[in-house]
Design a protein around this nucleic acid. Structure first.
Lengths: 173, 173
DNA sequence: GTGAGATTACTAATGAAGTTAGCAATCTCG
DNA sequence: CGAGATTGCTAACTTCATTAGTAATCTCAC
């Protein structure tokens, strides 16, 4: 079997005919709109790639990483909290936590007052061993921040706030 | 059955005892290191959330979105190219493309010169209908860029470059 | 108090999606 | 030309997520 591509003739277009029409619009080196937007896109790509890398290194899947990130950043949380954070069902979250616990990355404990709830906490060593992989980035970002004047930091921070706000506003409508 | 939580007694720790030790280190409003790093992290979170949202809206899974993003940004590509972009196997990529084609989001065409290859192209209307969802963000970012002076744009662009480089450097070792 | 209804975390059954292995067709190049 | 590399795909298997349903617990109007 496998008679693939049996003379399915047809003109395949040229390679890369200015895909997104960027030449025309902006790209005037130094101050164009797309200039910074492209960098933001590239940053997203790198972050995603780094997350895949980190997941492989630490033997944790994407959902597990998101949970661990939340646990480290916001402290112990209940499965329902984590489910909301993941935009996933509580059932899926139960399995994610199962995997994390089995891998020694997190632990479950009963909630002190509400006996329906469970409190998930990151393992002692998690933050340290994760930091081992993340530290190059932290260092790189710190250096980038250090290279800025106080005023420039405020500019960058304000800019990032506006970008975050743009994402927030884009979801609801 | 289901005799869960059968007196699994044990003191569950307090809620949020300064999870990452941020109070101590930095957080001095306005110019701390973490100040900007936190914003970058928040940005990542928002981007991820937006991607889930966009995927739901356009009936495309995460891998499919990554492929479409690549197709729109870099022009038509072969499955092998896309597989590299996804950090996935070519087999998985075949399935991703199958789904995109079935959904009318992309199409396959034989490569003009190399008859082993296949060229995947985005559907005509994809970019437009995707832009419908993305435009609020593009607008928001554009406004944020507009609010900056020429010099500030250069500062932000250079900063983003350094952050991207930090991610690049963090992966190889 | 008490009992109806909401919450919480989990299990079970099913479906969707990725991986490795392997193959046929094609290209490359000594 | 012909050995070896490339390309895209299929097949078998594994993994992960979803929907539906359940037991335990909590809330709160009465």
């Amino acid at each position: 079997m496998n008679a693939r591509r049996a003379a399915a003739g047809g003109a395949a277009r040229d390679q890369r005919p200015d895909p997104a029409g960027k030449d025309a619009t902006a790209r005037r080196a130094g101050g164009g709109y797309d200039d910074i937007r492209d960098r933001l896109r590239t940053l997203t790509l790198r972050q995603q790639r780094f997350e895949r890398y980190l997941g492989r290194e630490m033997r944790v899947d994407a959902a597990g990483l998101a949970v661990m990130d939340h646990l480290v950043a916001n402290g112990p949380a209940t499965p329902t909290d984590l489910a909301r954070r993941l935009d996933a069902s509580t059932a899926a979250t139960t399995l994610v936590i199962d995997r994390l616990v089995a891998g020694g990355h997190a632990s479950r404990a009963p909630h002190p007052t509400d006996r329906r709830k469970v409190v998930v906490s990151p393992a002692e060593d998690w933050e340290a061993s994760a930091f081992e992989h993340v530290s190059p980035i932290v260092r790189g970002v710190n250096e980038a921040v250090e290279s800025l004047s106080e005023q420039e930091r405020a500019t960058v921070a304000a800019f990032l706030d506006r970008v975050v706000k743009a994402y927030d506003d884009a979801i609801r409508p």
